[in-house]
Amino acid sequence: MIIKEISNLLDCTVLCCEEHLGSDVHTACGSDMMSDVLAYVKDQAVLLTGLLNPQVVRTAEMMDIICIVFVRGKIPDQTVIGLAEEKGIVILSTKARMYEACGILYESGLRGGANV
């Protein structure tokens, strides 16, 4: 699935790195705990979160996560967006809640990727 499809499925606002909307995403994870995100490596993943601080972008950077979706209509401040821009990480914002957003993507074929 490409990031553009995620954006369409979740009716997102694109906050930065629009030029990467054509990039392929293979897996996804949804969490507000960054240490949990760091525990499982996923390949070319998207991260869904309700957490808004710069550490979300840092976590994505370390994990090679290529897109972050902020749920529940949350918009991060300019520091967070600027950092993502610098790292080439697409930032999306959706009005959907975490459970809903994950469900929509899962149903559309985007699986979790980590071994349970």
């Binding site: 507000d32 705990m33 960054m34 240490s35 760091l38 979160t49 957490l51 979300v56 976590t59």
Partner: peptide, 17 residues
């Protein structure tokens, strides 16, 4: 710290992993 997304008790185990 937990409100900032850390402090889940995964830091040291993750490093070891």
């Amino acid at each position: 710290i937990r409100a900032l997304g850390f402090g889940a008790g995964m830091g040291l185990p993750n490093m070891k992993k």
